[in-house]
């Protein structure tokens, strides 16, 4: 008789009654795990600086979520891993040169984490209510506030423990300033350029450089079905097509040459892989309808290429995803699938 439940515990709901072990916190921690290969590659290329910055971001994200939720008497949800993920993603999106005492820029990751967690997420009501991807807002805030510190890139150094490194430009920066010939020259030959971009031996943010490691993590998420192919493939496909059409330049006049671009360089460089697989697919800020996800991905790709080719910044993935985040609710509403069995209203 002890097993008999009280009346109010016997809830009658509509079938199907599927039991599943998937919870928000389980998904979040799995995404964290999937990011680890890319993080380790960044750690390997940029040394201890990368570890320090990422750890600083994670610690300040988790702490600011904890203290904010304590302060406003909300349930403390630090264990669900979402603020850990925000910190990890933000850290992986920052340049390794931020860990520097002269000029002093160590406070920059902390400010970014607080903005990301408190203003972008908690002010809007916590996980599930935020309009924008927290880590990207954190990075956008930092890029606008500290334009100098956020655009100093260091060479992937062989000296593992060195906190100083030679500064250099990112491949996209070279492409924008000096053109494709200089970029190939910097890496030796074209094949070597592709190979270096693919394994991640280049200047850039901590976690964005290694395409190989990012693809391993993304493959794991796709296999677990935590993300679907719709957003990443439409995102990457749009970038490739637009890079092929509009990415080329006439080497003599410097004017745009149609259908002469190199899509592979655009696909492998910048934060595109990290953005397409791990940031644009954030459950909260992307459309939930499959058709809408494809529109979302195409929009992200088009805006990315618009900024890369015509904009003031060499890289546009961050602003592209943030701009499309605004449209996610609108896309969802206009692409709602028909209810099964419902009759369409006739137009009068």
């Amino acid at each position: 008789m002890a097993d008999v439940k009280k009346e109010h515990e016997l809830i009658v709901t509509v079938s199907p009654h599927v039991r599943d072990e998937e919870t928000t916190s389980r998904i979040m921690w799995t995404v964290n795990m999937a990011l680890l290969p890319a993080f380790f590659m960044g750690f390997y290329f940029f040394g201890l600086k990368a570890l320090f910055i990422t750890a600083l971001c994670i610690i300040s994200s988790v702490l600011s979520e904890y203290f904010f939720q304590k302060a406003v008497n909300r349930k403390v949800t630090v264990n669900d891993g979402s603020s850990f993920l925000t910190g990890l993603l933000l850290g992986m999106n920052l340049p390794p040169s931020l860990w520097s005492f002269n000029p002093f820029t160590i406070h920059v990751p902390i400010i970014g984490s607080v903005i990301a967690v408190v203003i972008t997420k908690q002010f809007f009501g916590g996980l599930g209510y935020n309009i924008f991807n927290p880590a990207l807002i954190g990075r956008a805030f930092l890029l606008i506030s500290f334009p100098k510190a956020m655009t100093i890139w260091t060479e992937p150094s062989a000296a593992f423990f060195a906190l100083d490194a030679k500064t250099t430009a990112t491949p996209l920066g070279i492409l924008k300033e000096d053109g494709i010939a200089k970029l190939i020259e910097a890496f030796g030959d074209k094949l070597n350029l592709y190979a270096e971009l693919f394994n991640g031996h280049r200047a850039g943010s901590i976690g964005e450089t290694s395409v190989l490691a990012l693809l391993i993590g993304a493959g794991f998420l796709l296999y677990k079905r935590y993300i679907t192919w719709h957003i990443p493939i439409s995102f990457l496909g749009t970038v490739a097509v637009l890079a092929w059409i509009f990415g080329g330049k006439n080497p003599e006049t410097g004017k745009m040459l149609l259908f002469a671009g190199d899509p592979l360089i655009h696909l492998l460089s910048g934060g595109l892989m990290l953005g397409a697989f791990f940031m644009a697919t954030d459950y909260v800020t992307c459309p939930s309808v499959r058709k809408g996800q494809i529109v979302f991905g195409i929009g992200c790709g088009a805006l990315t290429m618009l900024i890369r080719i015509k904009g003031g910044y060499p890289e546009g993935v961050m602003f592209a995803i943030l701009l499309m985040n605004c449209f996610a609710p609108l896309i969802d509403r206009s692409m709602k699938s028909d209810v099964f069995g419902a009759v369409k209203e006739k137009k009068k």
Binding site: I111, F141, I144, S145, F146
Partner: peptide, 13 residues
């Protein structure tokens, strides 16, 4: 300290 604050964005913040 925080350049964004004198930009219009910072005004809304």
């Amino acid at each position: 300290p925080l350049l964004i604050m004198i930009l219009p964005t910072g005004g809304f913040f």
